[in-house]
Nucleic acid binder design. Structure first.
Lengths: 153, 153
DNA sequence: GATAATTACCCACCGCTACCCACAATGTTA
DNA sequence: TAACATTGTGGGTAGCGGTGGGTAATTATC
């Protein structure tokens, strides 16, 4: 636990009968007390569940709050995010409970691959993730280069 | 709760024979005492009912007050909102009572999907909502991406 | 003013979830 | 190597939350 509120690495965990998933201890240990053991989970842009620590989620919400409700697109956008957003607090064992909707959306069953994405966490169906890696990621190494330039890797 | 007066998540609830709808406990718990268990319900921009907590409703009204009444469009706009607005207080079980007009407008029957929209709440006929999402989501994935970039999802 | 109807308040059931305890597997330290 | 700590996983249970329904109070109608 070196850098606060920062998540890296990949883990293969299991979902139990009560739809509970363990948050890797390395991730939990990286959380500052301000997050109060709370995550917000919602739909990702890809077919996965995204989990934000409380402090990160607040930033997202502030962004949403400032979008005017006058625009139809904005309304629809806000809805598509918050609709699936749920606040979850992990128990003494460090597990969070998934909602049925999100579990369906990401097509999760017995196993989950949990990926650290710097300021957020992604939960994937292992098969879907592997399939995606095989196809879409291999396609455009050019885009990777562009990104690498931007971030000064 | 953690983030005050802020609502997220989706819930499928039922309307009983007396036209009562339960407000999800997570929403009620997010309310500050200043709201005095009071909501204002009115017509949404879409075909749904919108519920504002008292404190949020005050802001809406201030906004309306500042719209000049000189313009015909403005007057009509204000009328369309305030006309259907009703103050409702939830009972000890946390239920509010819907007005007949609003129930008709949103075409609610037995079931309601309740969506947290950050600072307000929407009540939808489940079928209508799903149909709408199916269409509007398909229309502009590009605009969605732009928005996602803005908010740094 | 009597009766009917609608609303407000209260009580009761029941399923789910939040919380707790237990245990196995792995890693760590003396 | 043994003792201990940490971490992932399974399961039991009490309390809360959603739902239905009953009764008193208030309003409406004639």
């Amino acid at each position: 636990m070196v850098i606060e509120n920062t998540f890296t690495g990949e883990y293969l965990y299991s979902i139990d009968a009560k739809d509970r998933v363990n948050i890797p201890s390395k991730f939990r240990n990286a959380l500052t007390p301000k997050n109060k053991n709370i995550f917000y989970i919602t739909r990702g842009m890809d077919q996965c569940i995204v989990a934000y620590p409380l402090e990160e989620w607040k930033k997202v919400q502030d962004g949403l709050r400032n979008l005017s409700s006058a625009s139809k697109v904005y309304r629809s956008f806000i809805r598509s995010i918050t609709r699936y957003a749920a606040q979850v607090k992990f128990d003494k064992q460090g597990r969070i409970q998934l909602t049925q909707v999100l579990k369906n959306y990401a097509q999760l069953e017995k196993e989950v691959t949990i990926i650290g994405m710097v300021n957020k966490i992604e939960l994937w169906n292992p098969d879907i993730l592997n399939e995606l890696e095989k196809t879409s990621l291999r396609i455009d190494p050019e885009e990777y280069k562009d990104l690498a330039d931007k971030i000064i890797l």
